[in-house]
Amino acid sequence: MEGREEIKGSKPTFPLSFWEVTMAFTVVMGFVLGLGGVYLTMPASDYSFLKLPRSLEDLHILRDHLEIYTSDYTLQVLVGYCAVYIFMQTFMIPGTVFMSLLAGALFGVLKGVALVVITATAGASSCYFLSKLVGRPLVISLWPDKLSFFQAQVISIPCSVAQRRESLLNYMLFLRLTPTLPNTFINVASPIVDVPYHIFFMATFIGLIPAAFLTVRAGIALGELQSVGDLYDFNSIATLFLIGVVSVTPTLMSKPKL
């Protein structure tokens, strides 16, 4: 009877405590108020077209309308773009690839890549620190297998301070450059497996540049895209993997032989 009662009573519990939910809610409200402030600074107009793009069709509509405002209200568009991108990255909202395409369509390659890399790094950093506060139970609940794999890889890196710093940076660069683990998972899991922030920051900032370049460049010829899958052809994927393998080679060579 005792065993049955124990099994019957072991219901899945919500992974976050009241304090953690309060902290997360506070951060959400901070972003909502910030986005609201950006919206209020925009000139009076019809903004019914403003919504997070979920398809190329949505993106075309958003691009066509924002092109009019970008030349006259560049600062407001930039601030709004950055706020939305960071918000999406922080709370793991899908669709940042469309935001990267939009950067290319509105600002060109050089400015677009700089904008995407800076905002993506800021958003990833925001997600990192939010996860440091409340992320552990969520990651353990949502991605237990990926977390175990990631933690095992980080633990296996050489233990001396100098070796660990260099090898961990190389490994994190590899993860950013290749689809070995999703970027969203890397953002929330890194503080949980004790990846130092300065290494996380450098790997994110540098590692996002190649993919950002490919996406932003595609955004310039937005009308030629038939689907998001057209962004990464075989040559693009192969190039990213090659850069990733080169970045992780020192880490593999430095691991102690058994």
Rank of each mutant, 00 (worst) to 15 (best):
A24D: 00
L147C: 06
D64W: 03
F14D: 00
L16M: 09
L252N: 10
R164Q: 08
T251W: 05
V248C: 01
A120S: 11
I206F: 06
R4P: 00
A162F: 09
Y128S: 03
L52D: 04
V113C: 07
L16E: 04
T74K: 07
T70M: 14
N170H: 14
F91R: 04
V77S: 07
I93S: 07
L175S: 04
K11S: 09
I206C: 09
G112W: 05
F174R: 06
F205S: 06
P15Y: 00
I155R: 13
D46F: 01
A105S: 14
K11V: 10
D64P: 05
D58S: 04
L242K: 04
C159W: 12
L147V: 02
E224D: 13
V77M: 05
E6C: 00
T70Q: 10
M202E: 14
I192V: 10
L33W: 09
S100K: 02
L56K: 10
Y47C: 01
V117G: 01
V116H: 05
S45N: 07
T184A: 14
F49E: 08
T96R: 00
Q76C: 06
L52R: 12
Y39C: 07
V245P: 05
S55W: 06
G112H: 03
A152D: 12
M253C: 08
A211L: 05
V77L: 09
L252R: 14
Q226A: 15
T41V: 06
G223K: 14
T121D: 02
Y69N: 06
I220R: 05
H60Q: 15
M253K: 13
Y232W: 15
R54D: 08
L173M: 15
L225E: 05
W19M: 00
L50K: 01
G244L: 04
F91C: 01
I61A: 15
A189Y: 09
L115I: 01
V193Y: 06
T180R: 09
T215W: 07
F201D: 01
F241H: 02
A221W: 11
L59H: 02
H65K: 06
Y39W: 11
I68Y: 03
V27H: 03
L175T: 07
L173N: 08
K51H: 15
F18K: 09
L242M: 12
A114K: 03
D72V: 02
W143A: 14
Q163F: 10
S167F: 00
L40V: 07
R136H: 10
G219N: 03
D72Q: 10
C127V: 01
